[in-house]
């Protein structure tokens, strides 16, 4: 499972980095969403991956799942969600005001090939 999680984080990050280097705002937004997925998974894994254990320390259970990363990732998801919503609205505003969806507001489409 460790390998699967780390591979997923890696692939999501790679896709995110590739997409934010593109010149269209839509791809930029998608790239940032991918990156925030990657970092959420990463944060979740920072408390070590544990299966079937309660998030509290009890005498009955043989171990526990660290509850703090779960709280952190919840906060990060909420913030990331709000930021993404803001960025989408801003991208739409830029599309309307600058007349195109290039990140620099340039109208030439030469860079897209």
């Amino acid at each position: 499972m460790d390998a699967l999680v780390s591979l997923t984080v890696g692939i999501l990050t790679a896709c995110g980095v590739y997409l934010i280097l593109r010149s269209r705002t839509f791809e930029l937004v998608l790239g940032l969403i991918f990156l925030s997925y990657a970092v959420n998974l990463f944060l979740f894994a920072s408390g070590r991956l544990v299966i079937g254990k309660p998030p509290i320390i009890t005498d009955q259970a043989s171990g526990y799942a660290d509850p703090l990363p779960q709280a952190l990732v919840l906060t990060a998801i909420v913030i990331g969600f709000a930021m993404t919503a803001f960025l989408i609205i801003l991208a739409l505003k830029a599309r309307a005001e600058l007349g195109n969806d290039h990140v620099d507001g340039r109208s030439d489409t030469g860079e897209r090939s």
């Binding site: 934010i20 930029l28 990463f42 894994a45 960025l87 990140v103």
Partner: peptide, 25 residues
């Protein structure tokens, strides 16, 4: 302002992602 804002928002979102990676580490 919209153009400058778009750049600042995208860059800072990237910065926030790095911050979270660092905090996780």
């Amino acid at each position: 302002r919209t153009r400058a804002g778009l750049h600042v928002v995208a860059l800072n979102l990237l910065g926030s992602t790095l911050f979270l990676f660092a905090a996780g580490l």
